[in-house]
Amino acid sequence: MMQWESWSAFWDMGGAGFFVWGSYGVTFAVIALELVLVLQRRKETVKRLLRWRRAVGKDGSGRAGARMES
């Protein structure tokens, strides 16, 4: 705690707590949101493409992908 006398002084940020923590809080929230969206998009794409492959008959029926889903 080189810069701060106590934890409450740390959270208070010399009276600027709202502005400092509002900045950091929202920043890390949107980063977390972006990571979730990227992960979701991957799952959704793989699912959709597997469905598409079955629809166009490219799934090489009998292989793992088709067996697992049916």
Binding site: L49, L50, A64, G65
Partner: peptide, 12 residues
């Protein structure tokens, strides 16, 4: 991609 998707499908 077909091969990748087969692997992905098989993983679930």
């Amino acid at each position: 991609v077909g091969a990748v998707l087969d692997r992905e499908g098989g993983r679930k």
